[in-house]
Design a protein around this nucleic acid. Structure first.
Lengths: 253, 253
DNA sequence: CGAATCGTTGAATGGATTCAAAATTTGTGG
DNA sequence: CCACAAATTTTGAATCCATTCAACGATTCG
């Protein structure tokens, strides 16, 4: 293991996109913060969102230890969040997709606890956290939904712990693919056919495996007829069996 | 691995302790929710806290999938929180000590995402979450501190992921002991000498290792003069070297 | 005191890693 | 658009760390 992925280059993309923010017209509304808000409250939220910001593929939205002042809602694109341990090795904590919030790990802290890098050209909404806190006090529904999103974050991480502590490599990869599909499906995309936005190395890093192990396992899934793979394009051909493997049934074909 | 610790017996301890709650006089005030609150706000918090409740060693404070209505602040004693995977195996997500909150993983969900068991006879304050949410809207300092506690929870879990994904067994145990000491020290207890409140099996389960591995590693630490161990009583004799091992230096004595 | 639980130690095994090299894809400049 | 370099992915063989299986102490508790 100990995959020392080179730390991203020190290019910072700060080009704001000054389009007036309008949650009501945003396709991500039903996953993002405004969920279940009254129209007038959605507008109050619009007003505190500073701007949209484009992030080029490979650049940092924020880095570990950056001062924390805002959280981010992904409009389109994908991100990874990662920590860097004392030895300079990267550990990926998660992959984020449109409608998900970035920066939650820093709430209640002065600084970001991990960094976020765009896996492709992406766009986020910047939400100043102090202003959001003000709104949370005023709009109970917003507070509730904000807490729901935080709770999901905690649950996601606990599931990752479960995976890392108890699952065999086979299971980890199967779970990874299954979950990715489920999250995409919830957003209206195909569940069993999608593009991996990250390298094998990053998959392995996230799953606590080496690149080689991930590659080998994907190959085995392919040879067993579970998966069709063309580079980063993946199709789960046998979702039932894939879910069995995710649940712990051994693939000994 | 795959330590199938028997699920706890189905005894539920519901004996409330009807002492009027008084955060101002509680020794845990500076770690718990009331931190940094004005005295009158502390009293408002007191008023919504239903009661204190004693939990006997080995009994569940709550179980996975229980309906969620309150969070709990530990007054004294220690707990473990755990998930149960589909195969019925337990995975411990963390150990909690006085001043820490239990149940945060359920916020924004209908049900608890994990269970909590007392590792020794313990006492908690029950905090109805809906009433707390009301106060959060009224008392900005409380909202802020509540978010700080949640943030700490997320950070703790990310660190656990880092440990599980990248660390060798040696490191995991060293980190576990070091962190436990640090948390106890923050609460005014000795940093380098303490009682483990959990079985070796539970340590291993949490760290993604087998009992045998944990036992072997503790023995190696002992033989290398790093540790003095008498059953669950542990003394870190060489904190510097222990921290080195936690950081990744190999113990090849 | 005896049974059950918990903890330690040993030997053999195995799953994932490491090291190495080749194959493929992606990115870049001409 | 092609050619070439760099990056990424795949595959193979050897190694190693933690697990598994087994047995034996030690401790706890009724």
């Amino acid at each position: 293991m100990h995959t020392t992925i080179a730390i991203q280059p020190v290019t910072e993309n700060t080009a704001p996109v000054s389009t007036a923010v309008n949650c009501a017209r945003c396709g991500m509304q039903k996953f993002c913060l405004p969920t279940n808000l009254k129209p007038e409250d959605v507008q109050r939220l619009d007003r505190i969102i500073m701007r949209r910001r484009r992030i080029e593929r490979g650049t940092n939205l924020y880095r570990m230890n950056d001062a924390f002042s805002r959280i981010y809602a992904i409009r389109f694109g994908h991100f990874k969040t990662y920590q860097v341990n004392p030895r300079g090795e990267q550990q990926i904590n998660g992959f984020q997709m449109p409608g998900e919030l970035l920066g939650l790990d820093a709430i209640g802290a002065e600084r970001h606890q991990c960094g976020a890098v765009a896996l492709e050209d992406s766009e986020v909404c910047e939400i100043p956290f102090d202003k959001l806190e003000g709104l949370l006090g005023d709009i109970p529904e917003l507070l509730r939904h904000f807490h729901r999103l935080i709770g999901q974050e905690i649950t996601r991480e606990q599931n990752a712990m479960l995976l890392l502590a108890t699952m065999r490599a086979e299971q980890r990869v199967a779970i990874f693919l299954t979950n990715l599909g489920a999250r995409l499906a919830a957003r209206g995309y195909a569940e069993h056919r999608f593009q991996l936005r990250m390298m094998r190395e990053e998959v392995g890093n996230y799953l606590g495996l080496t690149v080689e192990s991930v590659s080998r396992l994907i190959s085995r899934f392919r040879h067993s007829g579970l998966l069709r793979v063309a580079n980063r394009e993946v199709e789960i051909l046998d979702p039932v069996r894939m879910r069995e493997i995710a649940a712990g049934v051994r693939l000994d074909a």
